[in-house]
């Protein structure tokens, strides 16, 4: 049963198993440094659909199906789907769920939705409310650009701190101890979840999301370590969602100011790693699909192979809306954290 530890961390005492995972990315992401770790690459980023939004929904649906298939299950074998994306009213997630016929909880916390889904999914499985929970999120460059920025073909320049929305999706299947399918690799489980506080340090610059989210990431990590009495060095890797290069540097600086000792080499960011400098993505990738695809490709792959044994996965989100930006409001940030461990840790 889930147990509260400290001020804001939940220990999942039954340790929900990570039974299967799957990731899908677009062509640009495939060409990046982590390219080979993704399961599936889109040949056509419209997926033969009429609109970008339907394409994103189809990508998410296919990713969920592939994830369930890897565990030898049908999508209906999940008791709940926890899903979200970046389009208004999380259209991609809902349109994906309408075809899957799995009970669904729609989530939105911008680019931190993957770790939010894992945290809630983990608690549902741990409490016995769900035998199996599938957590799946997506983002698509072409739906996010038109939602938050300018039309695709408009010719303008992006500042050096700007990030590139990843076209990608990731799905993770969490199972209770007795409900993991026999054929699934289940050496990895979820141990802790720390729900983030919404932090606003009065940044208004939409093209510097890393600066918006870094204070939230620093806050969540500090609280987590304090709650469970671990040091940052107890983790092989501390992985953030999409802070990008600017945000990662700011996170390290903020942690130093807070007196949280971390080894710089163990802190890395999905957004800063998914593209190479030659790919012209400026400060790195962003979008819920960024951390979701990297988790469900690179990170879980490494955990399974034993290249990392115990990691923090902390996706970060910038909580702006098209309305709030036009109204001149500052941008709040949030970061949810989950701990993934191999058995025997």
């Amino acid at each position: 049963m889930s147990k509260r530890v400290g001020e804001g961390t939940v220990e999942l005492t039954s340790r929900p198993r990570v039974a299967a995972w799957s990731s899908t990315v677009g062509k640009k992401e495939r060409e990046g440094p982590l390219g080979i770790s993704f399961d599936f690459t889109l040949g056509d980023d419209l997926l033969g659909q009429k609109t970008w939004e339907l394409a994103e929904a189809a990508m998410l649906r296919d990713t969920v199906c592939r994830c369930m298939d890897k565990a030898g299950l049908e999508p209906e074998d999940a008791d709940v789907l926890l899903s979200g994306d970046l389009i208004n009213q999380i259209m991609a997630a809902h349109f994906c769920a309408r075809e899957l016929r799995v009970p669904m909880l729609g989530l939105y916390s911008a680019c931190s939705t993957m770790s939010e889904a894992l945290a809630i999914g983990g608690m549902l499985v741990d409490s016995g409310a769900a035998r199996r929970a599938v957590c799946a999120v997506s983002s698509h460059f072409s739906t996010a650009e038109r939602q938050f920025r300018t039309p695709l073909e408009q010719g303008g320049q992006r500042p050096a701190s700007a990030q590139w929305t990843v076209t990608g999706a990731g799905a993770t299947l969490l199972c209770g101890k007795d409900y993991a399918p026999d054929n699934a690799e289940t050496v990895v489980s979820m141990r802790y979840a720390t729900i983030g506080r919404v932090i606003d340090y009065a940044i208004k610059d939409m093209s510097n999301m890393g600066a918006v989210m870094a204070p939230a990431a620093a806050d969540t990590l500090e609280r987590h370590l304090l709650d469970i009495g671990r040091a940052a060095d107890d983790y092989d890797e501390i992985i953030t969602g999409d802070l990008g290069k600017v945000g990662r540097d700011l996170l390290l600086e903020l942690l130093k100011e807070k007196g949280v000792k971390v080894d710089r080499n163990r802190v890395w960011d999905c957004g800063a790693s998914i593209f190479s400098p030659e790919q012209d993505a400026h400060a790195g990738g962003s979008g819920c699909g960024c951390s979701a695809a990297v988790l469900n490709g690179h990170i879980l792959g490494r955990l399974m192979k034993g290249e990392a044994r115990r990691v923090v996965f902390m996706a970060t989100g910038a909580l702006l809306s098209a309305t709030s930006v036009l109204q001149g409001e500052t941008i709040p940030g949030v970061a949810h954290l989950v701990v993934l461990e191999r058995d025997g840790e």
Partner: peptide, 27 residues
Amino acid sequence: DRIGKHAGAGSIVPITGFANSIVSAAM
């Protein structure tokens, strides 16, 4: 948009940039 990436205001200010802003939104 590829030209715009390099040209910045150089391709936004002339009348071609005005056409770009309307056509890109229409598309």
